[in-house]
Amino acid sequence: MVELSDRRSAHNYHPLPVVIAHAEGAWVTDVEGKRYLDCLAGYSSLNFGHGNPEILAAARAQLDRVTLTSRAFYHDQFAAFAAGLADLCGKDMILPMNTGAEAVETAIKVARKWGHEVKGVREPNIIVMEDNFHGRTTTIVSFSTDPDARDGYGPYTPGFKIVKYGSADAIRDAIDENTVAVLLEPIQGEAGVLVPPDGYLTQVREICTAADILFIADEIQSGLGRTGQTFACDHEGVVPDMYVLGKALGGGVVPVSAVAANADVLGVIRPGQHGSTFGGNPLACAVGNAVINILNRGEFQTRARELGERLHDRLRALPGVITVRGRGLWAGVDIDPSLATGRQVCEAMMRQGVLAKDTHGSTIRLAPPLVISAADLDWAVDRLELALKEFA
């Protein structure tokens, strides 16, 4: 299966050589019956576990009723989804899409249109961060600093100013009369789970308010319980002007994404100006409603917070580990590069029964489903320790 997949599909991914056939909770099983602990969780798409019963029940019930109408008509799941997600975010309204990249593109379009109509800016620019990851569309890779994501895809879309992540002064210095927004990840996931300095998000909020520009938080990976709060911005009590959401919003069942903002921002979009055939479809909304109900109870935020402390404490004590970053059940682990690459460590972990993902040389990312038990979490760290000993 691995050979056939590699021969008949484009090589835009470099998967570990494991073929998954079944999954439940935090565990997956391959075609040969071997079980693995999933410590990637679909890049946080599976925050609530593989096959979450509450989410699957909502999906199954909706499958028997209606799955797609397009937004040309109303359907009976949409109002609850729109109101529920807006309330979860503390905003007036949402605009639903499918993938995270579509949601980021939507946020960019909304910010530019807001700049044109509200601020009267003719050529708006948006301030973005070095080492960002917001997706791989042509516009988004235009402001990427990752050569793998950017190189070879020009000509590039103008209108972005790239500054150092974690520096409020860099943002302040980059603002000019044409700036309409600041777009950032509260924690940079693809870059290695980089957490900005304490107070950074608060400063960004203050700068954007003073300059009358939008603060757009890409919470696609960091949001919806992963870091121990509903949103990573909550750790500083910061509310952006626009949330960009995806991944876990679909419960690991269907792609669901959205932007959430107040009416004075999202109100600039009028009929025919932006849309998606599948965005906000009945099946997506039914699944999204189940996810919102789960998040409103707060149980997974608490689990991520409590188990996250356990995870980070144990990782920092491992020999061969240089640095551990992150919040909640999300960690970027820098391995001593003299020992092994991140890929080599992930391959060794796979042999030990744990699935994880490397990034940028000798860094591995750990992001297990939030349903993981304390015992399984300890087991995963023990397996990482055994993997590292292979290179000692």
Results as ranks from 00 to 15, higher is better:
V204C: 04
N98A: 10
I207Y: 05
Q301K: 02
H274E: 13
V244A: 12
G223C: 03
T29M: 10
V381F: 07
A374Y: 00
I213T: 02
Q229L: 07
L184R: 05
F215A: 01
A57S: 11
R205N: 00
I55E: 02
A72E: 02
R305P: 15
G342E: 09
L388R: 10
M97Y: 13
G320F: 15
T341E: 02
R150V: 05
P186R: 11
G223Y: 04
G250W: 01
A232G: 08
S9A: 07
Y153C: 14
G237S: 11
A261S: 13
D87E: 09
F78Y: 10
I187W: 02
R7L: 00
G308Y: 00
V321H: 09
G42D: 02
F48V: 12
R7K: 15
S222M: 06
E206S: 08
D38N: 14
Y74S: 14
P124N: 14
R327M: 15
E130F: 00
A217D: 06
V180A: 03
V121G: 12
A340M: 09
V291Y: 03
T138A: 15
E24R: 15
A211F: 07
S70C: 13
A356L: 07
A191H: 06
N289M: 04
V253H: 03
G189V: 06
R35K: 15
N289W: 01
E190D: 09
M129A: 08
R8T: 09
L85V: 05
E385H: 03
V182C: 06
G267H: 03
A83T: 13
E206Q: 10
A168V: 05
Q77C: 03
S276E: 14
G267A: 11
A168Y: 09
M97H: 11
P96W: 13
G272T: 08
T202Q: 11
P282A: 11
H22D: 14
L311Q: 06
I294A: 08
F73A: 10
G332Q: 10
A191S: 14
F78W: 08
T202P: 01
I292T: 09
